[in-house]
Simulated scan of single mutants.
Amino acid sequence: MTVNSSRKHLVLVGAGRANLHVLKGLARQGSADMNVTLVAPQPYYIDPAMLPGYVAGDYALDEVRIALDPLVEASGVTYVAAHVHSLDATGRRIQLTSGDALPYDVLSVDAEPTLEREAVEHAMPGARRNALFVHPYEAFVQLWPQLQALAQERALQVAVIGGDLAAVELAMAVAQALNSPHGSRVSLISGDAPLLADQPAGLQRRVLSRLKAMHITVLQDRCVGLDGQAVELASGATLLCDAPLLALIAGTPAWLTQAGLQADEVGELVVNERLQSESHRQVFVVPPHAPPETGPVLEANLRTAMGGGNFKKAPVGPVRLRTVSCGDGHAIAAWGFLAIEGREVWNWKDRRDRRQLAALFTP
Rank of each mutant, 00 (worst) to 15 (best):
S5L: 11
R7A: 13
K8A: 14
L10T: 05
A15H: 08
A15M: 09
N19H: 05
V22T: 02
M34E: 08
A40I: 01
P48M: 09
A49F: 12
M50K: 05
M50H: 05
E63F: 13
A67M: 11
V72W: 07
A82G: 01
H83A: 12
R92N: 10
Q95P: 03
L102V: 10
Y104D: 01
V109I: 02
V109N: 01
E112Y: 02
P113N: 06
R117A: 10
E121P: 09
R128F: 15
F133S: 01
F140C: 03
F140M: 02
W144F: 02
L147H: 13
L147Q: 13
G163R: 12
D164T: 04
A166D: 15
L170S: 07
V186F: 02
S187W: 09
L188N: 04
P194G: 09
P200M: 12
L203E: 06
Q204V: 12
R205K: 14
R206A: 14
V207N: 03
R210D: 11
A213E: 12
T217Y: 05
V218F: 02
L219Q: 09
R222L: 15
A237H: 13
C241L: 14
L256K: 00
L256C: 02
T257I: 07
A259D: 00
R274N: 04
R274E: 10
Q282K: 09
F284I: 12
P287Y: 02
H289E: 11
P292D: 14
L302G: 01
P318R: 14
V319Q: 13
V324C: 00
C326D: 03
G329V: 13
G329D: 12
H330L: 09
A331F: 11
A331G: 07
I332W: 08
A334S: 11
G336N: 01
R355D: 08
L360P: 13
